[in-house]
Nucleic acid binder design. Structure first.
Length: 571
DNA sequence: GCCGTTTTCGGCCCGACTGTTTTCAGTCG
């Protein structure tokens, strides 16, 4: 049972309690716990085994009551309270909550009045007109629920950051061209989250109507969902929803803060405001009726006695406490990156040549790059034979002699075989500048075995970077089972850097694991894993994710000078 | 159910919109 599973159980308990109509604050405690537990950096089962119930109550948001339920779950695999709830209310009701416009109250009415137990039942009931006559439900409600069910069926998954960001930037550009004074995106996109559910855009404009008109008639619009005096929603041709809000300049900062979120961050800010006898809303910070901060985000934070908090940190994961104590990290920036240590050429499964990569890296102002084609056994990616790799070492040696301002390192992305050995022999590995060890085969190993496999490779002393550590592909493939807590500790101990793959398909390490790495003293290497020249530009996504993981320059090996990096690799 | 420069009780974020109402509940972000 991993943390995500545990969080899901807490979520389901909370939602069932909502439907049941239990105390709102009890419900909130469960929902909050769900959020905290599912993103908790340590393996919770392990934490319990090592520290007992005390360790669990150390987690903010987990008190004695929840800790006991967790204990029961870990020991028996079940929570009686949850099982009883499920007897009372069918589990299928939870599906209903994912339909836009259906919340706990409606779900309860559907169950009690019509015996609806799941989504299918709801659809049938709507279509046969059974909702009419229920309290508070008319034609419009029926229509909306049907639309909601259709939308949900389409499998509207969240869009990857790398797909959503260019669309948002495109919309911003068009809005500015259409006369918007300021135009920015907010929401999870601004916080740099790995996926976005929609695109929130805020603008200030002289004429509100004009901005709305422009927004709803862009080329990329496929459908206008709503259009009013100050806001509008569209569906783009890429199938993502974009919401526009037009604001007065003097409320821009407060609105930007509010619409950037996260919800948890906002709630905590508001609680802080209350403690100070103030009120915070999307219109500003108020003392009584009087508004005294709203123009810029800096102003809003200052009014609450806080320094500016970077959007990537606004997840309600301790950033406000850190801000209060003057302990906010100085987050790594794209400009701090001095090189890219993971890229492929046409020799294996890439498309470019070393020379092309060198020239592109020079344009970025990099001091070094590492060429890391695949190793021999990875036949699907045309991994290099030992002979070819030896040739490659010589080739790069020669290249470096005539190269100014950039050093090319000769590395390899070496497969970690199922038994934990590396795919080239020791002698050959020792001649490389470094090796990235990666898992490309036998993804379905048991958690324990996978963890041992990787740690054994760490202990070889021949790999300096652990490539895309969890193997996930966003929206496509779940991570393989591995105990990241243990892996991160081992990485810190063995001097292996954990890769943060900047590929928008991976972003692996996750933000949460980055933070755990920082706390345990493991270093991170932010690499693009480029297979084509243009992919070198993906570095920004990696840096964003690193920032979400609270990483600073000194946590990242490719922020080191060449000299310091070589020292790290030689260790 | 959690939590404490409001500390073991009594708090727990704020506002808009929608659809159904005739003053508001439910849902959403």
């Amino acid at each position: 049972m991993n943390n995500a599973d545990i969080g899901k159980i807490m979520l389901e308990i909370g939602e069932l309690l909502e439907i049941k109509g239990d105390m709102i604050f009890k419900i909130r405690a469960y929902l909050k716990a769900a959020e905290i537990l599912s993103t908790y950096p340590e393996d919770l089962v392990k934490l319990y085994k090592e520290t007992g119930i005390k360790g669990l109550t150390q987690i903010p948001g987990i008190g004695e009551g929840l800790a006991k339920k967790l204990e029961e779950l870990f020991n028996t695999g079940k929570i009686k309270y949850f099982e009883d709830l499920k007897k009372e209310l069918p589990e299928g009701l939870l599906e209903l909550l994912s339909v836009q416009g259906v919340g706990p109250k409606k779900a309860k009415i559907f169950f009690e009045e019509l015996g609806i137990k799941d989504l299918k039942g709801l659809e049938k009931a709507v279509k046969s007109g059974k909702l009419k006559g229920l309290k508070g439900m008319g034609e419009k409600t029926e229509e909306n629920i049907l639309k909601g069910i259709e939308y949900r069926k389409k499998g509207n998954e969240r869009m990857r950051l790398g797909d959503a960001l260019p669309i948002a930037e495109g919309l911003i550009k068009e809005l500015k061209a259409a006369g918007a004074k300021e135009a920015v995106f907010a929401g999870s996109l601004r916080r740099g989250k790995e996926t976005a559910g929609d695109i929130d855009i805020l603008v200030t404009a002289k004429e509100h109507g004009k901005a709305i008109e422009a927004f709803t008639s862009f080329e990329r619009v496929s459908r206008v969902l709503a259009k009013g005096g100050t806001k509008a929603s569209i569906l783009t041709k890429d199938g993502i929803q974009a919401d526009l809000r037009v604001l007065a300049p003097d409320e821009f900062g407060a609105a930007l803060n509010y619409f950037t979120g996260s919800k948890d961050h906002n709630v905590l800010l508001r609680e802080l405001a209350i403690k100070k006898g103030l009120k915070l809303s999307e219109y500003g910070v108020f003392k009584g009726e009087k508004r005294f901060a709203s123009k810029t985000e800096e102003e809003v934070y200052r009014a609450l006695g806080l320094p500016y908090i970077e959007p990537e940190l606004r997840e309600g994961r301790g950033e406000i406490e850190a801000a209060l104590n003057g302990k906010l990290p100085r987050l790594v920036e794209l400009g701090d990156i001095r090189g890219d240590l993971h890229m492929h050429t046409a020799a294996s499964d890439g498309t470019g040549s070393i020379r092309e990569l060198v020239s592109a890296a020079k344009k970025k102002g990099y001091e070094y790059i590492g060429i890391t084609d695949h190793s021999a056994s990875l036949k699907v990616a045309r991994g290099l034979s030992s002979e070819l790799l030896l040739k490659r070492i010589k080739e790069i040696e020669t290249l470096n002699k005539n190269l100014k301002g950039l050093r090319v390192l000769c590395g390899s992305e070496v497969d970690i075989k199922p038994d934990g050995t590396l795919d080239y022999n020791d002698g050959l590995l020792s001649r490389l500048d470094y090796a990235i060890g990666s898992v490309h085969t036998s993804f379905r190993m048991k958690k324990d075995d996978m963890t041992k496999r990787v740690i054994r490779a760490f202990k070889s002393g021949r790999m300096k970077i652990f490539g895309h550590p969890t193997g996930r592909l966003l929206n496509e493939r779940e991570p393989y089972e591995i105990d990241m807590g243990e892996v991160i500790s081992a990485a810190a101990g063995e001097g292996v850097a954990l890769e943060l793959s900047a590929s928008p398909y991976r972003l692996d390490l996750t933000d949460i694991n980055c933070r755990a790495a920082k706390e345990k003293g493991a270093l991170v290497s932010i690499n693009t894993d480029s297979h084509a020249i243009g992919e070198l530009d993906n570095m920004k996504y990696g840096v964003t994710t690193a920032r979400r993981g609270w990483l600073e320059k000194n946590n990242v090996i490719n922020c080191l000078s060449l000299k310091a990096l070589l020292r790290f690799l030689a260790k």
